[in-house]
Structure formats: structure tokens, C-alpha cells
Amino acid sequence: MGCLYSKNARNVPGYEEPTVLAAETPFTVDEVQALYELFKKISSSIIDDGLIHKEEFQLALFRNRNRRNLFADRVFDLFDLKRNGVIEFGEFVRSLGVFHPNAPMADKIAFAFRLYDLRHTGYIEREELKEMVLALLHESDLVLSDDVVEMIVDKTFKDADTKGDGRIDQEEWKEFVSRYPSLMKNMTLPYLKDITLAFPSFVLSSEVEDSE
């Protein structure tokens, strides 16, 4: 099984050696190999080509391949480091590495900033914040009047934009997050510490191979 993994996996476009990925991320080699099981499952759910397409990502997140969501789109775009419209295995592991419980908090804060910087200007602007609040309301059952939305956005913006220049920069974001640490809760996935238990099949087979 271990041999099958290594021979087949090497033929997959964008495949990278687990030892290389483990060296660059908080994951161990075994964990990278377990992540390959998860990657295989997601990347073969619609088109079995060893790449995660947007619809496959949506299917994995929402159990619905057609469910569009601004935030899922942003996560997909940030995972797609090469910006070629698909997530390769190496991109998947490197990006999930940020969500590892042992990843540096600075990386998590920076990732969230890029997530919310919708137009890639290097700042989170008021319009972007309002657009995200409206997107959240759209996906949920919450109904808030435009006045209330304006009030929430205004209040938050004034709180975060401490320099008062009408935009939130990375320094202000870091300071804001330190005051509201719950904002970083989504940026840590405890599952990643137990990934070899969740997807043990390769680890078991690789141990057999190692002992031979």
C-alpha cells in the first residue's frame, strides 16, 4: 500500500514529497501523508484528477457543490497559491498548515487579514466590511435593517481604524484582534492535531513498509 501511495501520488500534478512539505509546515511526515488521504477524497469527489476544483471545495464544505459563498470563495482563492483556479496537494498542505494549532499566531492573523482584504489593496476598507456583513446576512437567517448594518459597520470601523484614515491596515488589524481574540477561533483547526487518527489508512500501511 505504501508503495502504491508513493508511485501513484508522484504522477499527480502538483504532488510534492511529504518530507518537503513536513519541513515547511507544522505537520510531521505522517500527518502530511494522512492529509493526502483527505486531499484524495476531496479532489476526486467530482473530477478525479488529483486537483481540488472550486465545486469540490464547496461540496466538501457545504455538502452542496453549487452553494456559492463569498468567504468560501476567498478561502479557496487564498489556498490557490499559484492562482490557476485549482488547489494542488502542496498548496492544500501549506495553506492548512496555517490552521494547525502549532502554527504561529502571526501567520493566522495575516491570513485572516488577506481573507478580508477583498480587493487586495493591502487594507480592509469600510465598503469591504459592509459587503462582508451583507454576505453573512445573506447566507444566514438573520435579518437586519440597513440602518442597523450601517451602525454595526460604523462602530466596528471606528474601533479598528485607530489611525482614523478610513482604512484598516495590518498593524491596526493585529491590535484589533488582540482585543477580540475570538476572531481568530476559526483560524485553528484542532482536527489537524489528530489528522493521523482521522485518516489512518496510509500511516498504518507506511509503518508496515518501513518495518520491512
Binding site: 468567504f71 454595526i152 466596528t156 482521522a198
Partner: peptide, 26 residues
């Protein structure tokens, strides 16, 4: 906590699109 007491980013962070733990559900 109700939406009115949450700041805009707290509200946004409740999005299902940001909850990647569902990737690990079988």
C-alpha cells in the same frame, strides 16, 4: 450574544464558509 452586541468581524466569523472543520467530517 446577539448580532447587535457583536462587532462586524465577529458577525462575519460565524460564516459557514470560514468554518473549515467541515472539511474533516466524514
Amino acid at each position: 450574544t446577539t448580532p447587535l452586541t457583536m462587532n462586524a468581524f465577529e458577525l462575519i466569523s460565524t460564516s459557514q464558509g470560514l468554518n473549515l472543520s467541515s472539511l474533516f467530517e466524514k
